[in-house]
């Protein structure tokens, strides 16, 4: 019985894994075909000769500063994630560990605001950025995402699970609220912080809509928006280079993820939102 269950599980896992991985494998194979060649049929999917130079071609496109896109994406996501962690964890700490008047009301506002993201606030936020002259600068890319209601929610849930006695003991020793937050709670919440950071990072790195409208010059484009140029450039007549561009956008995320994943998935599971 137990063996049967194991076999079925393995079978399902492998099947699902193949289903999820196949498109990626396909993408890599196509990216190695000769530029401008026709779409390969299934039997000729693996190219006779791997055209690695496609990667070089894409990375050195004269009018498309891919390196700059990378820099922009890294800068924006690192700063914004750090900001989110600080600002959200402060708020989450107060919501979880200090009873204060208006706490419930305020927290429900945060919950509600998860509905307002993106499409609903785009126009006013755009106009606001315009009136302060931040459009097409890093400020427009970073400031609107410096705090994140989802992180507040996630961190609060985690902080709630830490025994209150710890704070009280620290406070007995004369610790201030800041000290408790910085020296007691945060060190205990590394997994939750990592989780919030990972969610934040994935969200920012793959965001397309806001960078699309908030930036204009080539120098300010993020990787995601910058490389969408490839899709439109070839209008379906150069699949190998398109797939090369897709692999290039994807690879950094994949590497970060593979490094962070153990910490990350564990973090979510341990700091479960009950």
């Amino acid at each position: 019985m137990k063996i049967l269950k194991g076999v079925i599980s393995w079978f399902l896992l492998l099947l699902l894994g193949a289903f999820l991985i196949a498109p990626f494998a396909w993408m890599v194979f196509v990216s190695l075909h000769e530029s401008k060649s026709a779409i390969p049929v299934m039997s000729k999917l693996v190219p006779e000769k791997a055209h690695w130079e496609n990667y070089w071609t894409v990375l050195t496109m004269p009018n498309i500063p891919v390196a700059r896109f990378f820099l922009n994406s890294i800068l924006v996501s690192v700063i914004a994630v750090m900001g989110q962690l600080l600002i959200s964890s402060l708020a989450a700490y107060a919501f979880a560990r200090i009873p204060f008047r208006g706490s419930n009301f305020l927290f429900s506002l945060f919950l509600l605001s998860m509905m307002f993201a993106g499409v609903v606030t785009q126009i006013p936020v755009y106009l606001m950025m315009r009136s302060v002259g931040w459009l097409d600068t890093y400020l427009a890319l970073i400031v609107p995402i410096l705090s994140n209601s989802f992180s507040v929610f996630l961190l609060r849930q985690f902080f709630l699970q830490i025994p209150m006695e710890l704070d009280e003991a620290a406070r007995m020793d004369g610790a201030t609220e800041w000290t408790v937050y910085w020296r007691v709670i945060l060190p205990l919440s590394k997994a939750a912080l990592a989780t919030a950071a990972a969610f934040g990072f994935f969200g920012i790195w793959t965001d397309f809509f806001w960078p699309l409208i908030a930036t204009n010059s080539m120098q300010m484009r993020t990787l995601e928006v910058g490389l969408s140029v490839f899709k439109n450039s070839y209008g379906g007549t150069n699949w190998p280079l398109q797939m090369t561009a897709a692999v290039i956008v994807l690879l950094p995320m994949l590497i970060v993820f593979l490094f962070a994943q153990r910490f990350f998935i564990k973090g979510v599971v341990v700091g479960s939102i009950k």
């Binding site: 498109p23 990626f24 396909w26 993408m27 790195w205 793959t206 397309f208 990787l223 995601e224 928006v225 490389l227 969408s228 490839f230 899709k231 398109q242 797939m243 561009a245 897709a246 692999v247 956008v249 994807l250 995320m253």
Partner: peptide, 8 residues
Amino acid sequence: SGVATAML
């Protein structure tokens, strides 16, 4: 990324 996914 959404863009890469879409191309794929």
